[in-house]
Amino acid sequence: MTLLELEGVTASYGPVQVLDGVSLSVPDNGAVGILGANGAGKTTTLRAISGTVKTGGRITFDGKDIRGLRPDQVAALGIAHVPEGRGTLGDLTVRENLRVGAYLRKDSKAIEQDIDYCLDLFPNLQERIRSNASALSGGEQQMLAVGRAIMSKPRLLLLDEASLGLAPSTAKNVYDAIRRLRVESGIAMVVVEQNANLAFTLVDSATVLEVGRNVLTGTSAELKGMDEIRRAYLGG
């Protein structure tokens, strides 16, 4: 079953058209990567899904048309967006950030269990549970951003550049934890990533964007090491 489907999605910031007919299909429990150079439209594709940019075309989630919904309405349907730059709430503590993630839930007992699960997934956060998010390191903030997203018990996770600005070993830790999350929870994922090799450790298939269009789509096994991928990144 297809969980998320994008067909001919367009988006622009003012006069600048950023997406020019992007298509994407994410099956239940699947993980799909979006690869491409800076400015190819990767982040905007995620923003189109979560309702933070005006879009054309068709976006369906679980069979429902979600194009034009507000971000909080999209979130309520079970789509959690971990934005570029992480979006952690700096003046709130780690625990408060996680509780904000669970805002729409009423099952307070299960919420506490899920906080424990997040802390098990990201043990670094355990020691910082009372710290303000702004006092965390970049890697810890990224972990907290993912933790907050999964606190909403989403069916689909939108992950934007989770490795950005992190030391390679930290980025690997973050991706290891997300892979474990995927295996244990079966949450479907759309993964935007500059580092294609890192993305291939997590996704089953991927699409490559160039100036707002799909230029190549395939399984991870097909795409790994292909020249087009390198070309897309170098813009040549």
């Binding site: 934005p83 709430l89 408060e96 907050r148 909403s152």
Partner: peptide, 16 residues
């Protein structure tokens, strides 16, 4: 408080 700090990010958690 969450909305005051970052309204867009707060909306990603479903806050109206």
């Amino acid at each position: 408080r969450a909305v005051a700090i970052n309204p867009e990010s707060a909306a990603f958690s479903g806050l109206p």
